[in-house]
Each structure stands twice: as structure tokens, then as C-alpha cells.
Simulated scan of single mutants.
Amino acid sequence: MSGHGHGGDGHTCGSSCDGAHEPAERGVEFGLWRRIDVDRLQCLNESRDGAGRTVFKPWDQRADRQLYVQSDADHELLFNVPFTGSVKLKGIVVSGEDDGSHAAEVRLYKNVPAMSFDDAAEREPDQVFRLNRDPLAELEYPTKISRFSDVHHLAIHISANFGEETTRVYYIGLRGTYSEAHRHQVTICNYEASANPADHRAESIVPQTNFIS
């Protein structure tokens, strides 16, 4: 599937959105999965513990159906995704089954760690996407880069699907760039406690006279 569609406040891009891309090049662009702090990643309302982590995987594994996450009590899923540095998020791909269990709406929240469903209900998202069914992981939803230029934590809330009681996700791809977290170094400065006259010899002394009239 290629070309453009529209959903939410962004548009979807097929494989021709930015011109022809070699698979290897696309793999690099969607390499932010490597920058996720997997040990701290959380998926709320997953039916199987740890399944939410498996959908963040390499670009060339996006069509793999063996690993997936499925919601439990209802159709909602909430991913808390911490990064190991600073991310500029440019686009997202969400892939599922070609049926009513596919995610229909995604809400993104920037830098809100340990977000809950109550938080999602109360907070205004930074961006909302209305999704199309995308079983082959071909549709990219571009973000407002000005809002997602310094992301340390990304909350991904799947708030609706296409009608099933539960939601199933096979792949979430994150496109963007990454920069290492800056470590602040302590600079030690030696200040002169008192002036040494020998170090501050004047070349010449010009006397000044003040006249009082």
C-alpha cells in the first residue's frame, strides 16, 4: 500500500512518502527500538506479562506474527517507553490484524513517565492519530517534530480499535534520530585567594589630581 491517506491531525505515508527507500535504509530510520530502555518499558492491560516489549523490534521483523501483545480487560493498551537518551521522533507505524482488533486510535504523550490510564484520561495528548488497518506495517504517521524533538519518555495510548473487545498489536515502529544523554562534568577552577604584588607589576604609574573648586 503506498501513497497518502489522512487520519487525525497527521497524514499517513506509504513507502513512497519520502521517495524510494532501500530496506536497509528504512531499517536505520526505524532503529529507535535499539534506544529503548527495555528493562523499564511497561505495557498496561497486556494479557501476557512482558508481551508489550516484543512489538518494538527491527524493521525487517515487522511482519513477524509470532510475537504480539493483546489487551486483557478491554480494548485499551498503554505503553510507557523510556529511552536511554534524547530522541527526535519523526513518525510511528502501528501494525495489527486486518480485522476489528486492529488499533484505530493512538495518542502520544511526551515525557510523562509511569503514565496510567487515569493520567491519559485527564491529560491532553501531544498528538492523536486515527489509524487505518495496516497488517503489513506499511503506513507511517508523521509526528509534529517541533513537539517531539527532545523525547526521553514516550507514552503510547491505544484508545480505540475497530470494534473487537480486545486489541492485538504485532509491531510498533518508531522513526527518528537519537543523541546520547549528556553527562555534566564538574569543572574545577583555581581562584587566586589574594593578589601577589610581584605578579601584578605596573608598567607605569600616572598620578591623578582632583581639584576642588
Rank of each mutant, 00 (worst) to 15 (best):
E164N: 03
I205M: 14
P135A: 10
F162N: 05
H153T: 06
S47C: 15
A198L: 12
D150S: 11
D37G: 13
R34T: 15
P58F: 00
H182V: 15
H152T: 11
A160T: 01
A202M: 03
S71W: 00
R175P: 04
E29M: 11
K90M: 08
K57G: 15
P23M: 14
S149I: 09
R48F: 03
E25Q: 15
R133C: 05
A155S: 14
L139C: 10
S16V: 08
L108G: 07
H102A: 14
N111H: 06
G91K: 03
G100P: 00
G173A: 01
E76M: 00
H200K: 04
E165Q: 11
H153M: 12
V94Y: 02
P142Y: 11
L136H: 09
E203W: 09
F83Q: 04
R201K: 13
K88F: 13
L131P: 05
Y68D: 11
A73M: 04
S2F: 09
E76Y: 02
N132G: 07
V93Y: 03
L174Y: 02
G27N: 15
H102G: 15
E105M: 01
G100L: 02
Y141K: 09
P58D: 10
L89W: 07
H184F: 11
A155W: 02
F148Q: 04
G19Q: 04
S101A: 08
K88I: 12
L108C: 00
N111R: 05
T177R: 13
T54M: 10
N210I: 09
G163H: 03
E29W: 00
G176E: 10
K88M: 14
V93D: 00
E124Q: 09
S146M: 13
G176L: 13
V128M: 06
Q127S: 01
R35Q: 11
T187W: 02
A104D: 04
A198T: 01
Y68E: 00
A160C: 02
D37M: 10
P113Q: 07
I205N: 13
H75L: 06
M115V: 00
A51M: 12
T166H: 06
L67A: 14
A155C: 13
G50Q: 04
K57L: 11
P135S: 08
L77T: 06
A155Q: 03
H152W: 01
N111I: 05
K57M: 10
P113R: 05
T177Q: 14
T177N: 07
M1E: 15
H152C: 01
E140V: 11
L174K: 14
D150Q: 05
S95C: 00
K57F: 15
C17K: 04
V151E: 05
R53V: 00
V28T: 11
T143K: 06
R175T: 11
R62K: 09
E122F: 01
V28I: 14
H200C: 09
H4D: 08
S15E: 12
